[in-house]
Design a protein around this nucleic acid. Structure first.
Lengths: 337, 337
DNA sequence: CTGAAAGCGCTTACAG
DNA sequence: CTGAAAGCGCTTACAG
């Protein structure tokens, strides 16, 4: 292994000077710099990141705290992960996967000194991980929000997303629009913040329109989607359209409706929000989708975190981006009532 | 920050002794050990992983070299990633995401000293990443295989998978079965090994059955699936069933067939191999699937790598696991010809 | 502009 | 069974 010492010897300087040119931390005479750069090149030298981390107490490693992804459709989560990995790499950081199941994982994260900061996905309304991060003073950024919106976050703008979905449906004559959200195994208060925010955005919008709301909550699976179809038919038969914020249930909802003799979009128009167009295309008919800004949010989250670490930030980042409408074939004119 | 020195002082021993009990590397008198453990507990000490890595030249970090995942369905890849992350954590290792796009990323990996080993996904028949890993002597394990099967790998047993899929179809009376595989942007020889292996397993099996093969290669997208449906109808009209090894094209194939007036499974039976049951359920009709053993393979791959690092291995691991048949509604009796 | 030296927090022969 | 000390490969005040 070629070390900084080797480079220093070949260039006839001290290792300190080598370090200065490598990091650009101090000015170095042009000839000296050239000599060092030549030596680096000739020896194929690459700085040892572990030694650097120990000496500088900065590892340039970030943790990505993510939920356990299951086999069910997870297109948006994948986009978060991938865009975060790329964003980190572009700024010279590495991203380590940190599946958090309990306290043991958090201790390893906080006390081991491996990471400079953490990026949290699937943030809960009241998130114990956030409490522990704050207590330990490890820098972090959220993809999503807790109750406390003073923390650095990037998130989907659900208010605008719901408003646009409703506007789209209303342009087709729909007035009674139901909402299908996701049920999780998490105890109350620990659901992803998204679920609460979507529901309240929907209720506000419906109230403003003077229409009665109808909210159905089901698991994020095909079976959940079928359950939603049944609940719609039985409990909200007057709804001619539905906004779905439940990626995993979208296929089941359409299949279940058809099984109940309700065609999409003939009898029921469907918009699936916070998902990807590719997933919508898998379904028959292709779903009209509000595509999640996941590719942007992963990057923005990483950048918010790194800015914080490097002291670049002016203020705490509070970034909200709405989903984008991608029309498919699942929205049609409201059936006359 | 509480260091080993703090623990040593409180327990009235040297830091060497603390290190010995922490690592179990040398026997320590029971009373001494108890004293040290108490001190660790009281101080809430946790070993600094960076210092440990520098001193021991083992970082206990593994790199997961993965392709760029796009928005299209990627259920099996996700299962690989998640099970690898869990497997690593269970053995005390961390997993860092390593999207490899070019040589720059490989250099960073090989020379930076950050990782003890690498796990490769989407291995190509001739994979330049493998060449570089071998040259650099960084330990690695493959999820998939290159041409050279002497390297440590875990992979799907495509021969058995294809045989079982064919047997299932033949039990429904199908004799002419086509294969749909995936086209990639990669130059020839650099496709994922899977594609070549699936095709040759299929050709061998069809030859053994005395039936003519028909192979169609399309992109892993909905549009690709539609293209496959068209090609099947035009170029292989005698095929009454198709085995699909192209997760992203599955939905498009079914939708495209229907658009051409061919119903599934009435006119065409479909088995989607190397995917997940959950994805199959999203489609109408629910696809009969050969579920990929992705949750096992991620773990097995990590374990193979760690065994190698820790010298536990007896021999190079060459592990093959077939997919598992999960019946759906996309296979029916062959139409009379 | 450059260097000698301390130090980051551990592990690990080597002595005793 | 335990300790003193060298060393892992860097960064960073401090001197000059």
């Amino acid at each position: 292994m070629v070390t900084m010492r080797d480079v220093a010897e070949r260039a006839n300087v001290s290792i300190a000077t080598v370090s200065f040119v490598l990091n650009g931390t101090k000015r170095v005479a042009p000839e000296t710099r050239t000599r060092i750069e030549a030596a680096i090149e000739e020896l194929g030298y690459r700085r040892n990141v572990v030694a650097r981390a120990l000496a500088s107490s900065r590892t340039r490693i970030l943790a990505l705290l993510h939920p356990d992804l299951e086999a069910r459709p997870n297109a948006t989560v994948i986009q978060f992960v991938m865009s975060a990995a790329h964003g980190a790499r572009e700024r010279g950081y590495d991203l380590v996967l940190w599946p958090v199941n309990g306290d043991e994982q958090m201790s390893h994260l906080l006390a081991g000194g491996l990471v400079d900061g953490a990026l949290l996905m699937e943030v809960q309304i009241h998130d114990p991980r956030v409490d522990r991060l704050i207590a330990s003073r490890l820098p972090f950024a959220l993809i999503g929000r807790t109750e406390d919106e003073d923390l650095p976050f990037v998130d989907i703008d659900f208010v605008t997303t719901i408003d646009q979905a409703l506007a789209h449906l209303r342009s087709y004559g729909h007035r009674r629009v139901a909402l299908v959200t996701q049920r999780t195994k998490a105890p109350s208060g620990h659901e992803p913040g998204r679920i609460m925010r979507v529901e309240s955005a929907y209720r506000d919008a419906m109230a403003a329109l003077g229409e009665p709301p109808a909210v159905i909550t089901v698991a994020g699976t095909s079976a959940g989607g079928r359950e939603a179809a049944r609940a719609l038919a039985e409990d909200a038969p007057e709804a001619t359209a539905v906004i779905l914020v439940n990626e995993g249930a979208s296929a089941g909802l359409v299949k279940g409706s058809r099984e109940l003799g309700r065609s999409v979009p003939g009898d029921l128009s469907v918009i699936s929000a916070s998902t990807t167009a590719e997933l919508g295309e898998m379904i028959e008919p292709s779903l009209t989708v509000m595509a999640a800004p996941a590719p942007q949010l992963g990057r923005l989250g990483v950048n918010a975190l790194i800015d914080q670490l490097e002291g670049v930030q002016d203020a705490l980042p509070h970034i909200l981006i709405p989903c984008t409408l991608v029309p498919g074939q699942s929205v049609g004119p409201a059936r006359p009532s």
